[in-house]
Design a protein around this nucleic acid. Structure first.
Lengths: 134, 134
DNA sequence: CCCCTTAGTATCTATAGGATACCGATGATT
DNA sequence: AATCATCGGTATCCTATAGATACTAAGGGG
């Protein structure tokens, strides 16, 4: 039932609600965090630019997301002593290491959109009365 | 600023809130959906078993999650005419195709737990007054 | 003096998630 | 025969999170 790996993190178990790996896993799955990370893939981006690229996120939620990513060591926050203010957000090495896994997931999502939309149509049709069978 | 891939899904853009790929991507990132899919990796599982394996999910939320996965064509729901009732949930081919990407992410999460916990400690220390610098 | 910019906060509301209780059907138990 | 246990959910209530919107601070320029 369980696969014990000899390498790194053999005791980590996503299914255990007390295991930090679950928290980490769900952080990645956060509605906005993974999008923010991907926007930062090409280098530092400032707050206002993030708002434009990750539409349509509200400033409050973007701030929350960035704080959490910073706290988890995935991004850094650099404040420039300017007016108007400038704050750059940038991936750390840890954050960059997440890009690969995220890309795999993103590719899956984008290439399977048609299948999923078809399934939805079929599902909705089946409960709209115009069901082809039954 | 944007990378257009020649392969599958060149028009899908996760950053576009109107693009279905974003919805799909965020569905994967759902707090429970990805855990459920991984529990179903080894074959059909019934409702009560899912509740045990994906702890600690409430029945209402598990039902919602399963309905959504079913609607999106990732799992099937099989009702057996028994008492007490038995309902099996099982991955479709589409659902199985998601296991690979999810495993990549899970491995990343489980192997990077220490780094993230360290970052959190450092972050929290820095705002507890006992900051080592400044 | 007022307006422009940026990077957020403050406040309020809407929606989703979570805790708990309950239901329907039936076989086993008492 | 009445009761209990099982299973797959619903119904109800409450809270936590997300979202919408307005506002602030700190200057520079007109």
């Amino acid at each position: 039932m369980e696969t014990l790996l000899p390498g790194p993190g053999p005791s980590a178990d996503i299914m255990d609600p007390l295991c930090p790996s679950r928290v980490v896993f769900q952080r990645i799955g956060d509605k906005w965090a993974s999008l923010v990370v991907q926007v930062l893939a090409d280098g530092p981006v400032r707050f206002s630019e993030l708002r434009k690229h990750v539409h349509v996120i509200t400033p409050k939620v973007l701030t929350q997301t960035l704080r959490t990513l910073e706290r988890d060591g995935l991004i850094t926050r650099t404040v420039f002593a300017q007016v108007p203010p400038r704050v750059d957000y940038q991936l750390t090495a840890l954050g960059e290491s997440l890009l690969g896994p995220l890309t795999v997931l993103r590719d899956w999502a984008e290439s399977n959109v048609p299948s999923i939309l078809d399934a939805r149509d079929a599902y909705d049709d089946a409960r709209d009365g115009t069901l082809p069978e039954g």
